[in-house]
């Protein structure tokens, strides 16, 4: 009898905690939606910021995150493969620890670093600098995902490949990466979702731009930086637009996360 009561108490406490978490998520979404509703319209996606829309900002944010992914994923994956498959002992452990520390580095520091490294010598803020700042954020995430996902592949699979006359690199490329592909894809998607919502690394690197542009050598449109700017504007219209932009950004991140989870649930 006592066990049953304790069980019920524990169960209700867990359910309560889960609900509290969900309430905040719902609260955030509802607030963003209700505050942004005034300016939420289809024209947000067809007009640029200069005309009261968000088109160029969404495009700019995506493009910078995409460039970061294209540069960061191969680098991070190769580093992760090195750590799990080739690196043994002290040297690999130091790299693994450094990568973990990088993952928790404050993003504003990474922004400042890229500012000194690229923006200052270049002379002005630009889209490349923003992409590189995001790349630096992404690499440790990809390293750690690759390292973890490869560790889940049973060692028998590696041995079976070797036993059939495969070289180590052939076995890794043709078997191990395939066996871990669902996890790796999920990791990359979640990494992408993480960097697409970043503001601090872009603040002094890409800045933002009110006009449509594809020229990465100039100040580049960024949704997050513009939210920051618009929220500080004195007009109600600007602040409404900031709310709408926040809602759209949240939906984008949420969507990518759900797609990522869906992958793992389906096949993991």
């Amino acid at each position: 009898m006592k066990r049953l009561i304790i069980n019920k108490i524990a169960l209700s406490l867990s359910v309560l905690s889960a609900l509290i978490g969900l309430v905040f998520l719902a609260w955030i979404l509802v607030t963003l939606f209700s505050k942004g509703i005034n300016s939420l319209s289809f024209s947000l996606f067809t007009q640029d910021l200069i005309n009261g829309g968000l088109r160029n900002l969404i495009f700019g944010q995506f493009l910078m995150a995409l460039i970061a992914t294209i540069i960061g994923v191969p680098l991070g994956m190769m580093a992760g493969i090195y750590l799990r498959e080739y690196g043994h002992g002290k040297y690999a452990n130091i790299i693994r620890d450094l990568s973990d520390i990088m993952m928790s580095a404050p993003s504003i520091i990474i922004g400042s670093f890229v500012f000194v490294l690229i923006v200052e010598p270049f002379g002005s803020i630009n889209g490349w600098a923003g992409s590189i700042a995001l790349t630096i954020m992404l690499i440790p995430i990809v390293v750690s995902t690759t390292d973890n996902m490869l560790s889940l592949v049973p060692k028998e699979l590696r041995e079976a490949g070797i036993a059939l006359g495969g070289g180590k690199h052939q076995v890794i490329l043709s078997i191990i990466l395939k066996a871990a592909r669902v996890g790796l894809m999920t990791g990359i998607l979640l990494g992408f979702a993480r960097i697409i919502g970043e503001t601090a690394p872009l603040l002094f690197t890409s800045g933002t731009n009110s006009f449509w542009t594809t020229d990465l050598n100039n100040a580049f449109p960024s949704l997050t930086v513009s939210i920051y700017n618009l929220a500080n504007f004195p007009t109600d219209k600007a602040r409404d637009l900031a709310w709408a932009a926040s809602f759209i950004l949240t939906m984008i991140v949420l969507f990518i996360n759900i797609v990522g989870r869906f992958f793992t649930r389906d096949k993991g």
Binding site: P154, A160, A163, L164, G166, S174, K178
Partner: peptide, 28 residues
């Protein structure tokens, strides 16, 4: 590599590769 082609090995747990049945046999 030559040695392992001459001396094959089967493990305790089946170790199919994550590919088609045909490709599994064609792998080696």
């Amino acid at each position: 590599i030559k040695l392992r082609q001459r001396v094959g090995m089967i493990f305790q747990k089946p170790t199919p590769f994550p590919m088609s049945i045909f490709d599994n046999v064609a792998y080696g």
